[in-house]
């Protein structure tokens, strides 16, 4: 199957997604911000629509507008702390409303399905370059901000007292979430990005390891989820987004069974 150029493109993008999604996902899940990932993934459809309208690459269009919405959520959340959930609903309505209006009015001509469900066939070489650029910058920024992000996630007050500029880090993080979503749109699709951000991390958390090890396991599970999704979707001719989401749930269930069943059984046997 790798004799096809589209499959090679899809494979490169899939590998990058499998690294970037859990890198961002672990902080989103542990900060209980998973819903922000979900809201922003829907908001990215507006970015795709605006990008196509302005004749930009849709991945970069999604990145621009999703970053804007991510920063807007952060600004509104810090001003109206008691209405955090409501803010997500407002942003979701605004962005999805914008996307549906642009697309349904026929202002852009595209196959919306491929953005919603993901597609192997539509990953262009331009998309690959955009994904590589966004992924490399995201990974470098996460590496640079790693201790600050871990401390903010673990003990926000302690981090601020130690000199972490939480507002600045949170704004940068919002842009990183936007970048992650934008690179994932092509393969996994807007509707299942949030599952790819959260589920590999959820599976890794079951193993009760330290932070770095949990992150490594998250990347491993994400890699398994996306590549299985890619290969299976190729053979059964289905959208990769759906197959990837199903694989992610299956891996999570298997890890829970392993942990609750086999590990608990071994522990009991050791004690008796």
């Amino acid at each position: 199957m790798f004799e096809y150029a589209f499959m090679q493109n899809a494979f490169i993008v899939a590998i990058l997604i499998s690294i970037v999604c859990p890198l961002i996902g672990i902080f989103l899940v542990l900060r209980r911000y998973s819903m922000i990932g979900d809201a922003l993934s829907h908001a990215s459809l507006a970015g795709v629509a605006v990008g196509l309208l302005l004749d930009w690459n849709p991945v970069l269009g999604a990145f621009g507008l999703t970053s804007f919405f991510g920063i807007l959520i952060e600004v509104l959340r810090s001003r109206f702390r008691r209405y955090a959930e409501l803010i997500l609903v407002i942003i979701l309505s605004l962005s999805v409303g914008l996307a549906i209006t642009i697309i349904s009015a026929g202002l852009v001509h595209t196959n919306v399905e491929s953005f919603l469900f993901g597609s192997i066939l539509t990953v262009s070489t331009d998309d690959v370059y955009a994904v590589i650029a966004l992924s490399v910058v995201s990974m470098a920024l996460i590496a640079k901000l790693y201790p600050q992000l871990v401390m903010l996630t673990f003990d926000e007050d302690g981090a601020q007292i130690a000199g972490v500029h939480s507002k600045v880090v949170n704004y940068i993080f919002s842009v990183l979430v936007a970048a992650t979503i934008s690179v994932s749109i092509r393969i996994v699709g807007i509707l299942v990005i949030s599952s790819l951000i959260a589920l590999p991390v959820a599976a890794a958390l079951q193993l009760r390891k330290g932070f770095r090890q949990t992150l490594m396991y998250s990347i491993f599970f994400s890699f398994v989820d996306i590549l299985s999704g890619l290969f299976l979707s190729y053979y059964i001719d289905a959208a990769p987004g759906g197959v990837t989401a199903l694989t992610a749930v299956a891996v999570l269930v298997l890890v829970i069974i392993y942990k609750e069943g086999i590990l608990s059984w071994r522990e009991k046997r050791r004690q008796s």
Partner: peptide, 30 residues
């Protein structure tokens, strides 16, 4: 200035982080 938080109020006991990692991140931040 350094701050020692109230353990049960502030920290998430399910957080996946080792003792070494807690101190190492603090070291890097400082």
């Amino acid at each position: 200035r350094a701050y020692v938080p109230q353990r049960f109020e502030t920290l998430n006991s399910q957080f996946p982080i080792t003792v070494w990692e807690v101190l190492n991140c603090y070291r890097q931040v400082l």
